[in-house]
Design a protein around this nucleic acid. Structure first.
Length: 256
DNA sequence: TAACCGTGGCC
DNA sequence: TGGCCAAGGTT
């Protein structure tokens, strides 16, 4: 849930989920439709499907328990470099480097003396994080580094007077401005992502299949784009079409 | 490697 | 107002 999503927005939904589905097998027993609906407007709804799929694998192959090993974690859907290490570190106390967007920024500044992390390089990120990760108290260290980036060493307005680090290469260099080319903004208005979001919002608001006209009303300006977005939702497994031609969240369209 | 994948708050 | 950004992952 926390992937590319602020903690404050995730927190209430996470509480609801662990209350409703305390074990992986509880989550796996739900329909994808119910999962996507409970995901609400957290964004990137494919994450919800991957989490659902992951829960099924944990229930079936891992005794309903999240594995401790980074390699095993990486093999699970929706779990990449960051998440695998975060679980190993925070849930199981392993002193493995945990590199998220905050840590990348802190290292870029404090260690390399650069204003911004630059292009992601998993290899370099992990190498640099490894050099500063202590062999003991790995979880405390990782949490502290992430928190430093989230609260003090922020992207827009770093609060250097409150920074606890004894020294920082970026400050010592006179806080130089970013050097590289500014990365292309994500963009959203008018993209397929926005259209997908509109369509999904219609389906989340219903308990069963809806007519094609309801889908069409979600995006009026461009029918080609609307069809493309709907097609991608179908191929992602977020939406399904019923035998009578209507559309629903996957798993609630009735038997097919 | 780069493009794609949501949503909402902040300045 | 609009661009930037957020506990990234997959293809």
């Amino acid at each position: 849930m926390l992937q590319q999503t602020p903690v404050a927005r995730v927190e209430p939904i996470w509480h609801e989920w662990v209350r409703r589905w305390p074990r992986p097998s509880d989550l796996a027993a739900e329909s994808p439709a119910e999962i996507v609906r409970a995901w609400g407007k957290l964004g990137y709804p494919r994450r919800a499907l991957r989490l659902h799929e992951c829960a099924g694998i944990l229930a079936r192959d891992h005794g309903d328990v999240v594995p401790e090993d980074v390699e095993q974690l990486l093999a699970l859907p929706g779990i990449g470099t960051y998440t695998a290490r975060a679980i190993a570190c925070f849930a199981y106390g392993q002193a493995v480097p945990v590199v998220d967007t905050n840590v990348r920024r802190v290292i870029a500044r404090a260690v390399r003396g650069e204003a911004e992390p630059g292009n992601p390089s998993a290899t370099r990120d992990l190498r640099e994080a490894t050099t500063i990760t202590p062999s003991r108290d790995g979880a405390v260290f990782a949490a502290a580094l992430m928190e430093l980036g989230a609260v003090i060493c922020t992207a827009r307005k770093p609060d250097c007077p409150r920074c606890p680090l004894p020294r920082c290469a970026w400050v010592e260099a006179g806080r130089p401005a970013p050097t590289g080319p500014k990365r292309a903004g994500q963009g959203y208005a008018g993209t397929d992502r926005q259209v997908r979001g509109r369509i999904l919002d219609v389906l989340r608001g219903e308990t069963g299949p809806v007519e094609r006209s309801r889908i069409d009303s979600a995006w009026l300006r461009d029918g080609v784009q609307r069809d493309r977005a709907l097609g991608s939702l179908l191929s992602d497994g977020l939406v399904e079409q019923t035998s009578d031609g209507r559309f629903a969240l996957a798993g609630e369209g009735g038997a097919d």
